[in-house]
């Protein structure tokens, strides 16, 4: 029996989103096929991996992922320059974790200053993230968006509880925006609709359906992403067509598997390789589910994921 490849045609397309300015912009999304299915459609842009840095020293990160940034991570500007100039990264994600009331409770003015300082030191695209405290994120991200005006950054994350102010700030200052909801296809769609109803261009949105780490609910993120992507492509659901974010690092580097020492758990093998593998495997699997933008921490994990992306495109 002759074999006819059962190829699919899709009616929808994921938006392409470009961030940054000048000759250092990056673009992700834009495909009209399931992830890496270039045998039946077009995927013009490869996924982008941004390196995570933060406004305060990463003392809460496990030692194995602090190490690559030893000597530079005490200051966000030095850290950002190290990523750009030494690691040659394509984009940076600055998390303003120090603004969280349970952390250093830094003010929105402090946050704006950090954003300005980092932006004046780099020319690659920047993603600016709050501390995921819905109340505090509103003033912090408004100040950050103003400080980054016209640098075409991504601001995030807007959630159901605080999206109005953040959307307005992203709109007024010409940024892209991450809309995050918690592991639910319908909530994700609803938030995208609410945001576009405010007049925000839907082609400037990025969806974060909420990440989870390998072994800690990854299958939920995986299936939610697959379902969102299928709705975008096979049903041409315009509210589901923004590219998706996998905010990998912060979920991966707090689980036991990336922290426990080999002395405590000899059958798990060395912690350093284990941590890198945990982050890289989580990232790879979410790329297969449909993520186009990843935020990661360990340079070695990013390096191997990039190598496999090279093979996939």
């Amino acid at each position: 029996m002759a074999f006819t490849p059962p190829k699919e045609t899709y009616i929808g397309r994921v938006h392409a989103v470009t961030i940054g300015v000048g000759d250092k912009t990056v673009t992700f999304g834009g495909e009209n096929v399931l992830p890496f299915h270039t045998f039946e459609g077009i995927a013009p842009n490869r996924p982008v991996i941004a390196y995570e840095i933060q406004d305060i020293p990463p003392t809460d990160w496990p030692e194995n992922v602090q190490k690559p940034y030893e000597g530079v991570s005490n200051d966000p500007v030095t850290w950002a320059k190290f990523c750009q100039d030494v690691l040659k990264v394509k984009a940076i994600a600055l998390r303003l974790i120090g603004t969280h009331p349970d952390r250093e409770n830094r003010s929105h003015e402090d946050a704006a200053r950090t954003v300005r300082d980092v932006l004046s030191a780099i020319d690659i695209p920047l993603i600016i993230l709050g501390s995921n405290h819905t109340e505090k994120d509103a003033p912090v991200l408004v100040a950050a968006a103003e400080a980054a005006k016209d640098r075409n950054c991504i601001i995030g994350k807007a959630q159901e509880a605080n999206y109005k102010t953040i959307v307005a700030a992203a709109m007024a200052n010409n940024h892209k925006l991450i809309a995050m909801s918690e592991l639910d296809v319908n909530l994700s769609k609803q938030l995208n609709i609410l945001i576009t109803q405010m007049g925000f261009d839907r082609e400037r949105l990025i969806t974060d359906p909420m990440c989870s780490a390998l072994g800690y609910g990854l299958e939920y993120t995986y299936s939610v992403m697959e379902r969102i992507r299928l709705a975008a492509l096979t049903q041409n659901d315009i509210a589901m067509q923004p590219p998706m974010l996998g905010d990998i690092g912060m979920y991966v580097w707090k689980v036991k598997e990336t922290q426990a020492s080999e002395t405590d758990l000899p059958h798990w093998g060395p912690a350093e390789e284990r941590g890198m593998a945990w982050e890289a495997v989580t990232a790879m699997v979410l790329l297969l589910a449909g993520a186009e933008l990843l935020i990661m921490r360990h340079p070695k994990a990013v390096e191997v994921v990039e190598k496999v992306i090279e093979e996939l495109i």
Binding site: L214, R274, V281
Partner: peptide, 20 residues
């Protein structure tokens, strides 16, 4: 089949093969 690699791959298989 290093232990760290097994742990990651076993966990992934377990995750994706659970009944949704």
């Amino acid at each position: 089949i290093e232990k760290w690699k097994n742990l990651a791959l076993f966990t992934l298989r377990q995750n994706l093969y659970t009944d949704p």
